[in-house]
Design a protein around this nucleic acid. Structure first.
Lengths: 151, 151
DNA sequence: TATTGTTATACTCTATAACTATA
DNA sequence: TATAGTTATAGAGTATAACAATA
């Protein structure tokens, strides 16, 4: 197992342990954050689609299906549900009449902001349990984690 | 929004931004790690049950249902599927004949180890894209993240 | 002829309600 | 009478296959 980690450019044995610890902690913490949902009426994929639209701007159903790793018929259904809830808008594609353009509404933006706020509050309450030194280490690592997340 | 973060004991405005960055990065990275599955034939909950058994040792179906936030009938089904796949063993409870004891098999332990290995390799390949200083910050933060994850 | 999106249908996972066995 | 687990059934969510419209 360590042999598979030995191509790490920085160290070797200790680094493997650090990677293992990092993976475990990120997955566990991510799972707990996921449970802090603002709107129980939205499925995880629906939330994820809204997040993608917020990050990448508008997109066609096909693009969304590829980004969310979901089949096109599923995205058809998801987009229809989101439209019914007033969270996305559908417009005809300017160049290709087969395609459609999906974009988020102001309601969606407000809901996402509220969702982020709720998770932040929850995470901040956890951080209360840390001492100043631990929190400093976390602050220093945050930009690196962000870089990893979209590497 | 910042008013809700102002009860952070360490700082205030910058801390809110750091919490936001941390939340976003942990969730995104966690989602990507989750996709690195070793066995596509196991559902997320089945994997999670095996993880719980590995962490906590054997447990009754009722305990597992509570830990996984799933209803008892669902756990009945999950345990039956895992048993059919040879990943858990069911034994009678020593004190109470209504209950059963579920424990993982050697195959499950091997599979979990393989799963951890695969995710570690993937994460290690990401870490390759960091410089020594960034990796040092991550290593320093790993124990703190672990503490957060089970706080 | 290939591609985008949709409709029709089936499968997987989970939940609720009703039941059996044991405490 | 209460509790642990199971069976029966229904509801989400997603997938595959077949289809319509456009490129």
């Amino acid at each position: 197992m360590l042999t598979n980690m030995s191509d790490l450019s920085h160290g070797s044995g200790e680094d493997a342990a650090a990677v293992n610890s990092l993976r475990s902690a990120v997955m566990r913490l991510g799972r707990r954050l996921k449970h802090q949902r603002v709107d129980e009426s939205l499925s995880p994929t629906e939330m994820s689609v809204l997040g993608t639209l917020a990050r990448c701007g508008s997109a066609t159903p096909g693009e969304l299906a590829r980004k969310e790793h979901v089949q096109p018929p599923s995205m058809t259904r998801i987009v229809a549900l989101l439209e019914a809830k007033g969270l996305v808008r559908l417009e005809p594609h300017p160049d290709d009449r087969r395609q459609k353009v999906v974009s988020q509404t102001e309601e969606a933006e407000a809901m996402l902001e509220e969702s982020r706020r709720k998770r932040n509050v929850w995470l901040a309450s956890l951080v209360e349990g840390l001492d100043e030194d631990e929190w400093a280490k976390l602050r220093a690592a945050a930009p690196v984690l962000e870089k990893l997340a979209h590497l």
